[in-house]
């Protein structure tokens, strides 16, 4: 009983299911056109905003390629209709200036160590705050976070006096140390949060694999932290390179960075557009290269550690 044969009957041929049938709302050509059309105004607005934002920079670039006389004579946009007035004279005279040459080198000598030192110390401190248990760790980290809000202007006078006593006022070392000091809180904060996001099991696995604390740091934590380290490097590099205030206060004429040197080139009277525009662009070139080279990391790294 209850063993009645069960059969499944099919009326008519069975049609295979086509992939298209399974796609819920497949977008045809018409759909895509509609998409662009509906988003079209948005794109136009975005492009306009982009151009509007870039206009001053473009203007500066064009002005830097015109002579002082031409700039005094007419607006930079006239060059768009008459490219023959464009010239590299401004750049030539600027680069031929030994003060500028020296300042360029100074900027590199300040920026590179300031960036590397921040990375070095912040990585180790970030690792310690994230993964090593030591008494007072949380309090200390709170202090670091507190330092984030201390403006560097607050440090100018006390540190100037300190440097005087140490005899490093006016030296490149002084400028570098100042940048490192005020760069560290944010750097530690960023890297600590990034490192804290590394799964605990990964660290434990490395320990089981035989890694000492030191090896763990260099072989596991640092390689995993590359996105954050790269972002931080770009950030710190740009910050230091573009700095005027710190260089102005702590450097002397032998150690001044390019930002300070360019400012010094300005004439007390009369137009300075030829010097300022070309100098500004000159000092922008390296940061732009760095930024575009590491842009990928920059975006990813700043998001890193903010969430899971």
């Amino acid at each position: 009983m209850a063993n009645a044969p069960v059969t499944t009957r099919v009326d008519g041929p069975i049609e295979p299911v086509r992939p298209d049938d399974l796609r819920p709302e497949g977008k045809g050509l018409a759909g895509r056109i509609a998409d662009v059309a509906s988003h079209g105004p948005l794109y136009v607005i975005l492009v306009l905003i982009g151009i509007f934002w870039m206009l001053p920079a473009i203007g500066l670039l064009v002005a830097s390629l015109r002579t002082a006389a031409a700039n005094a004579d007419s607006g930079w946009w006239t060059a768009l209709g008459n490219p023959s007035q464009l010239t590299l004279d401004n750049y030539q005279s600027l680069l031929a200036n030994p003060v500028i040459q020296r300042a360029f080198i100074n900027t590199v000598l300040i920026t590179v160590p300031a960036t590397l030192l921040v990375l070095f110390f912040a990585a180790m401190a970030g690792y310690a705050f994230a993964w090593i248990r030591f008494p007072g760790r949380d309090v200390l980290f709170l202090v670091v976070i507190g330092l984030l809000v201390v403006p560097l202007q607050l440090g100018l006078i006390p540190i100037a006096r300190l440097y005087n006593q140490l005899g490093i006022f006016g030296s490149i070392v002084g400028v570098v140390l100042f940048h490192v000091g005020f760069g560290l809180p944010f750097a530690i904060f960023l890297l600590r949060n990034f490192f804290a996001g590394i799964p605990r099991e990964l660290m434990e696995a490395a320990r089981m694999d035989g890694a000492s604390e030191w090896r763990l740091f260099f072989r596991v934590v640092l390689p995993l932290g590359i996105p954050a380290l790269a972002a931080l490097a770009v950030y710190q590099f740009l910050w230091t390179w573009n700095d005027l205030l710190v260089g102005l206060v702590f450097a002397n004429s032998n150690s001044q960075p390019i930002t300070v040197a360019i400012r010094e080139q300005t004439r007390q009277f009369g137009a300075n557009i030829d010097i300022i525009s070309s100098g500004a662009f000159l000092s922008m070139v390296i940061p732009l290269i760095v930024f575009f080279a590491f842009q990928r990391y920059f975006v990813r790294g700043l998001l890193a550690g903010s969430g899971k």
Binding site: P199, L202, E204, A205, A206, R207, A211, S212, V220, L224
Partner: peptide
Amino acid sequence: VPARDRDVAMVFQNYALYPH
């Protein structure tokens, strides 16, 4: 004895492979 010197190996729930 620290973990690294115990000469035992562990397989974790989340595998804990080094992604890099």
